[in-house]
Write a protein that binds this DNA or RNA. Structure first.
Lengths: 343, 343
DNA sequence: TTTAGCACTCTCATCATGAGAGTGCTAATT
DNA sequence: AATTAGCACTCTCATGATGAGAGTGCTAAA
């Protein structure tokens, strides 16, 4: 399918106009609004070609044209120039990050909030997560009775905390001693290494190691870290969801973390840090997203920790701007995360 | 305002029926559906009395009756007996908690999910939070260069982590030593105590103490802990929100954490652990909630850590069941939290 | 190849209509 | 004195008819 320059222009204009008005766009409107040097009849002819190509479609015989999903895909693939975010916007965003608390969790929440506000759509951010869990540090804090708080720090900086119950009460001194021993012996070890070192420890140490290994296995098996969402209500204000039922389906995929992990897992597999994925209208696979588009990027350090960030909005979305926003925020997060990497 | 038994009965039935059908209920329907031993004319007379009292209202002259907010309030205040959740349900719920991981965060997420599913409405759970922050334990883990991961454990079990940047790189040994010294010296101290102890430490120790105090102050100033939400999409499926715009307003109050903290702060002030608050139709104060009711309870240990849990749904809500569910989950959480208290 | 002109199509807002549900009132009944 | 049957009345809502408006596709002229 090879389009003439004029056809590309018209497709672009139809998409632009439709994104603004959410209405089918007619030939006459186009000529008037964009001062085109051709008549509406010419546009009509071109439009009917684009309709043949399945890039545009008519909601009904005598209505204007609306871009098809394929039309959007062509547009995103061929017609958007790599637009960069205005410098002012970039500065505003960076500023927010660098003046926030130095805490990964804060950054991720902030990223979700910035994405949602900038794109006026729902956003998601997953915490950075490593494919391989490497032990870094362990801490045990006496809670009450046989309860102990275990804090586990992984290489890269992921932190997990958990209450464990020991067979009998143990003093804080003894707990610290064991934790120090394990921290010292096992630093930079993976699950197998730790299992191998297990016999070197005394009974208490071995109990702790068992819990430690179980926890690390759990982490290693999970596809993504914590998920942060924001801006779900923006989706509700879109005119394409007058019936809240349709918006419900889309938001449900965000809320139900198993569904979302599925989506992320199968989408991000073949995306590297720096790359970007644009899912338009569910791409035939995600039925609940038939009315939506999702823009996803990966951030982090490819060697160790990576996470996903993205935006979910209506198909009728300002792709160029949203894509560059997502990309920019991904870069900012990558920088922040790699700066504060625990090695 | 003093109601006869029959009037109470009719009010109750109208509410029951309206909750099921979401429609105005007429006198004839009532007689038929509930096999009442009186005629529809009698009901009509009583209904017009209840309408006088402003407990019922007519959407228009020739429609059935709908409960007013005041009607619901009277119903909740006087007519619901302290119904207990069916034992089977209670068991199902407890079971889920006791087989989950022993981790406060997991419990809270689970609580939100259980509440949302049980009540088919949006739910919120705030992490347990103390009015007064008392230091328990500190850990410092070398990250990279001058970056250090600081893990702070408070009495009660709240945990905060944060990256800090020191003036110069410091070895893990030295960091552990300082952390141990501080942990040992300052355990059970509040902010003032720690500030007083500051001079006892060396330069590095004092730097750490400064950050520590700043962080503890921050925690003490915040009204609530982390907030967990679930079931937002349930609200969208309610027939009272055909226009997604109205649902949007209500959900916005949940999503915007500052609004939510406001609501929680002013509502929970005069509620003790074990108590429950029912906000019907925004109570004239919360405009965005005009169409909604919120049921809130407090859980935790009144002496140390408390949090809030609650449900947000349409005014037309099965109050007795929802109230007992919220109350039950609050109790379960109270038990879990106090069992695993860090003292 | 482009454009003016025109008949044609389809939607959407508006209005009229009538069935249906429910009420309030009055007079009869218990 | 309280309850009920009966009935006129009111209001909504679904249905269908109507016409303006927007947009198209086609044809013939430029």
């Amino acid at each position: 399918m090879r389009l003439t320059d004029r056809q590309k222009l018209i497709l672009t204009l139809v998409i632009h106009e439709h994104i603004q008005t959410a209405q089918p766009v007619g030939s006459k409107t186009l000529v008037l609004k964009y001062n085109l040097a051709m008549s509406s009849a010419t546009i009509r002819n071109e439009m009917s070609v684009l309709t043949e190509y399945n890039l545009l479609r008519q909601p009904h015989t005598s209505a204007g044209r609306v871009p098809t999903e394929e039309g959007y895909r062509f547009f995103v693939g061929n017609l958007t120039q790599k637009s960069t975010l205005p410098t002012a916007t970039r500065r505003t965003i960076s500023h927010q990050f660098y003046q926030s608390r130095q805490d990964v969790e804060q950054w991720l929440k902030l990223a979700a909030s910035v994405l949602a506000n900038q794109s006026q759509a729902a956003s998601l951010v997953t915490a950075p997560h490593a494919d391989k869990t490497i032990f870094k540090h362990l801490e045990l804090v006496a809670a009450r009775g046989r309860q102990v708080l275990m804090v586990l720090v992984l290489m890269g900086g992921e932190i997990r905390q958990q209450f464990i119950t020991l067979a009998e009460a143990v003093s804080q001194e003894r707990l610290s001693e064991v934790a120090n021993r394990i921290s010292h012996q096992c630093t930079r070890c993976d699950i197998d290494d730790i299992s191998r070192l297990r016999p070197q420890f005394d009974a208490l140490g071995q109990d702790i190691i068992d819990i430690l290994v179980a926890e690390m296995t759990l982490i290693e098996e999970s596809v993504t870290g914590e998920i942060y969402l924001d801006g779900m209500t923006y989706v509700l204000s879109e005119p394409e969801f007058p019936e809240s039922d349709e918006a419900r389906q889309a938001l449900h995929i965000l809320e139900e973390s198993s569904l979302l992990e599925n989506l992320l897992a199968s989408t991000m597999m073949n995306t590297d840090v720096g790359g970007i994925q644009v899912l338009i209208g569910g791409e035939g696979t995600w039925d609940e997203l038939r009315q939506c588009s999702v823009i996803l990027a990966r951030y982090g350090d490819p060697q160790s920790l990576t996470g996903s960030i993205g935006v979910l909005g209506p198909i009728r979305m300002p792709y160029d701007r949203t894509i560059s926003t997502v990309q920019f925020v991904a870069n900012v997060l990558s920088d922040l995360v790699s700066e504060s990497l625990v090695v």
